[in-house]
Amino acid sequence: MFEARLTASATFKKILDAIKDLLNEASFDCSESGIQLQAMDNSHVSLVSLMLRSDGFDKYRCDRNLTMGMNLANMAKIFKCANNEDTVTIKAQDDADIVTFMFEAKKQEKISDYEMKLMNLDQEHLGIPETDFSCVIRMPSGEFARICKDLAQFGESIMISCTKEGVKFSTGGDIGTANVKIAQTNNFEKEEESVTIEMQEPVSLTFACQYLNSFTKATPLASQVQLSMSDNVPLVVEYQIPDLGHLRFYLAPKIEE
């Protein structure tokens, strides 16, 4: 028996919004420690890694490890039927080929349930080594989204250069070039507005705009985003989901031809 109950179904809506452009379907691996998802996009250039800890749920029970393959567009359709304030309960039997989503209004005046067929997905898992990154940047997630959107107008790729002084986002194309520099802040009062840089050595890497812009669909999940970079290693874009876990995106850097 698997059962997970979360007071805020809005969180699930936001997670689905953040990943459904990159992934058509994905396997949710459920265990005692929580729900995990790891999947690459169709072109195998980026990877989504989601972790929702069992202790972040209001109720969590997982008697046996369970892998639930789900079509994310269909899952999003179901979550559209829930109000943001509804409590969601996800249920499945041990060997089930269906999953049930139950939505309960706060005062129990409305209870709805939706059953969805599970899929058998043959997904490739990648081993992601622990990395000591040369640069770890924390900045407002909205600012990162804004920069990616703005620069996408001018080029297909964004170069992210990180030094002790700050981070520079640059692109160029037929129109010309665009550069945005973000300095480290000393704003200790408003943590969500701060920019912090932990740097071992400066790094400069180039990434496809299209993917960075997809990742920023996760912006409503967290006020801050963390970018981790090292030379010749995929970028990690991480959104912390308060009290529940994290959503990470990995993106292979472009290389000189």
Partner: peptide
């Protein structure tokens, strides 16, 4: 602007 490798150039399948 640059070649786009896949993630398999960096991570191994498990």
């Amino acid at each position: 602007s640059g070649k786009q490798p896949t993630l398999m150039s960096f991570f191994k399948k498990t």
